[in-house]
């Protein structure tokens, strides 16, 4: 029960911020894919940078655990390409489609219906995929600091420097 309440409150705060930054709009999502408006990239990277600093402080202090997913190339590479195709057609991603409906952009409902169908199709295909694509290039639960054999704060520092340069470029180009 407590878990459900936490989920709801966290979702409300996140949805509120997504709407405030206008990143749940079709025009913003397609704007990024067309390289004409990088608002969603600015939002995503800002939250990733703040999030990774905070989460690594927590894990260093032993207050939280990372949730690392397996790196399976046979899943990630085709999955990423297929997701990108669908995302560009729909213009919303799984979380933002719910947010889009919240601000009245009810074409998000079509997206939600399609995604439910897509999830059902995937569940049917899963036994086959589990024996094929999902066994190709399985590197297990790896992280960048682990693979490169360096302290995680070095990676975080490099990411933030790179991200800041990208932000600077976006602003200079008016994207």
């Amino acid at each position: 029960m407590k878990e459900l309440v936490y989920g709801l409150i966290t979702g409300i705060m996140f949805g509120f911020l997504l709407q405030k930054a206008r990143v749940i709009r079709y025009d913003k999502q397609l704007g990024a894919l067309r390289f004409i408006d990088m608002t969603i990239v600015k939002f995503m990277l800002s939250s990733v940078f703040v999030g990774m600093i905070g989460v690594y402080i927590l894990t260093d202090m032993g207050l939280a655990k990372l949730s690392v997913k397996s790196t399976i190339l046979g899943g990630v590479i085709p999955g990423g390409i297929i997701f990108g195709l669908g995302w560009a057609l729909l213009g919303y991603c799984p979380g933002t489609s719910a947010g889009a409906v919240g601000e009245g952009r009810w074409d998000g409902i079509w997206g939600i219906l399609g995604m439910l169908a897509g999830a059902a199709v995937y569940a049917e295909a899963f036994p086959f995929l589990k024996k094929t694509a999902l066994t190709w290039g399985d590197f297990g639960k790896i992280t960048l600091p682990q693979v490169l054999g360096v302290n995680h704060w070095i990676i975080i520092f490099i990411f933030i420097i790179g991200g800041s340069a990208l932000f600077y470029w976006f602003e200079k180009k008016g994207l």
Binding site: G79, F83, G111, G114, M115, A117, G118
Partner: peptide, 22 residues
């Protein structure tokens, strides 16, 4: 037209997301 493309896009996107594990 928008509804049709959105439904198809949603299906494709979710299949891909699940395959990628995200």
């Amino acid at each position: 037209k928008r509804a049709g493309v959105a439904v198809i896009g949603g299906m494709v996107a979710m299949f891909g997301a699940r395959l990628a594990g995200g």
